[in-house]
Amino acid sequence: MTHQSETTEQGRTGGPDPDGVRPGGALENAQGAAPDAPHPTPFRPRRGRGTAAAGLGLIIPVILLLLWHTLSSNGTFTPAQLPEPAKVLSAGVELARRGDLWIHVAISTQRVFWGFLIGAGLGLALGAWIGLSRWASMLAGPSIGALRAVPSLAWVPLLLLWIGIGENSKVTLVAIGAFFPVYTTVSAALQHVDRQWIEAARSFGINGLRLFTTVQLPAVLPSVVSGLRLALAQGWLFLVAAELLGASMGLGFLLTDSQDNGRTDRLLLAILLLAILGKLTDALLGLFERWTQRRWGAVSST
């Protein structure tokens, strides 16, 4: 077992960055690379640091869980106010056994998925249009700004009237929630891309689509990613709003239904599931962010 390969552990995906410097190359330095070679900053996060961070992030949830257990079992709260964690767990097991749990989770996730896809897609497209064209910005910027000023839940009665109470109105509401964060961050970031970079690229004959992919897109990617993450959070928020207002399935429905039937355990279960789903989907976007950083280098737009 002397030949345990260490290089496979580096997690190098075959990215288009042959010059990339591997983090943690102490061994290589010892083997006689130029001793005064400047120290490159590692652009990829160290794997070890990632696990440590995850471990650290678990401390507070565990403390909260312990606190919850104590407060619910020592009589500070009645079971109707705050059931024990174990009760919530068994409520979850019971719902899962009946198959209801998966339906609620699946339908909510599906609504967020489509709503996010549509809203974020439109936000990207419109944000890019407004951010790249001064003419478009003067034409449509004020109108979109005015629409944004309407608190998005104010659309609900109109949506119900026009689209009815089915899936489409819920997906539309999620899309509205996801649209604005993406639209705002993308258009603003594009408008603030350093003019000097653009001019330099143009002076080398780089124009149009090539200018966009060479300068503007990589410059705004960090903002785009944070816009997408905001949009996703907003999407879940709007999902719950939509399901509270009228649904027969989904986690928002589980919330109202549990409230009506005095099932605080299920109510807490729904909240926990929303937290977990929100975190999981956000982590997916985190992976996407990591990918963009690997591809473009970790650089903010100014």
């Binding site: 000097q196 970079w197 330099a200 690229a201 300068v215 990589p218 410059a219 280098g297």
Partner: peptide, 9 residues
């Protein structure tokens, strides 16, 4: 100013 794109090598 050098005007190099910071995300490129």
């Amino acid at each position: 100013e050098p005007r190099l794109l910071p995300w490129r090598s």
